[in-house]
Simulated scan of single mutants.
Amino acid sequence: MIIREWRGRALRDKAGEYPTHFRKTVVPELRKVPGFLGATLSRREEGDRIEFLVLSGWESMEAIRAFAGDNLDKAVVEPGAVAALSDYDQTVRHYEVVADIDNAPETA
């Protein structure tokens, strides 16, 4: 599995707009892409802004290419996200998952 990491930042008074956009627009579009495995949206306070972290899971770099195009490191940022954020990363990072731990009890 490949994790795709991207970050964007919003002013506090607009901090609710990006999560709404993410749930209503981004997630339905991602679910249409073969090889998309899921995503998390996290937030943290950073001075007068809120930083959002999106981690999406993919079966392969080929699946990411189907979503992002040939320039795999370029962020895909929709107009709704641009309107909700004060700034955002223009590039993404990819990580190969080497361990995936859940909290389920181990079986013998």
Results as ranks from 00 to 15, higher is better:
R4Y: 00
A75N: 05
L37T: 03
H94I: 01
V92C: 01
V54G: 03
G16M: 10
E46T: 08
N71R: 15
I3P: 00
A39I: 01
R7K: 15
E59F: 02
V82R: 15
G80D: 06
T25I: 14
E96V: 10
R9T: 10
D73A: 11
S56P: 03
L41F: 00
D70L: 08
L53F: 10
R7V: 05
V26E: 05
F67H: 08
S86E: 15
T40M: 09
A83H: 07
D73H: 14
R4S: 01
A66V: 11
A39G: 01
S60Q: 04
P28A: 11
D87A: 12
V33K: 09
A104L: 15
L41Q: 02
H94R: 03
G47K: 11
E46H: 11
R7E: 08
D100H: 14
A83E: 13
L85Y: 07
V26L: 11
I3F: 09
D87E: 15
Y95K: 06
E62L: 05
S42K: 12
I2N: 05
E29R: 15
I50C: 06
P79Q: 09
A39F: 02
F22C: 00
G47Y: 07
V77S: 04
T107D: 12
E5R: 13
L30P: 00
E29D: 14
V33M: 08
G16Q: 12
F36D: 01
D13C: 11
P28L: 08
N71K: 15
K14E: 06
V77N: 03
T40Y: 10
Y95S: 04
R9E: 12
V98N: 04
L11S: 14
F67T: 00
A39S: 09
T40F: 07
F67Q: 03
D100K: 14
E59M: 05
L37F: 01
M61P: 02
V98G: 05
L11H: 13
Y18S: 03
A104T: 14
V97F: 07
R43P: 02
V98P: 00
R65S: 07
K14D: 06
I101A: 09
R23D: 12
R23F: 08
A68V: 01
T25A: 14
G57L: 12
T40W: 09
G57S: 10
T40S: 11
I3K: 13
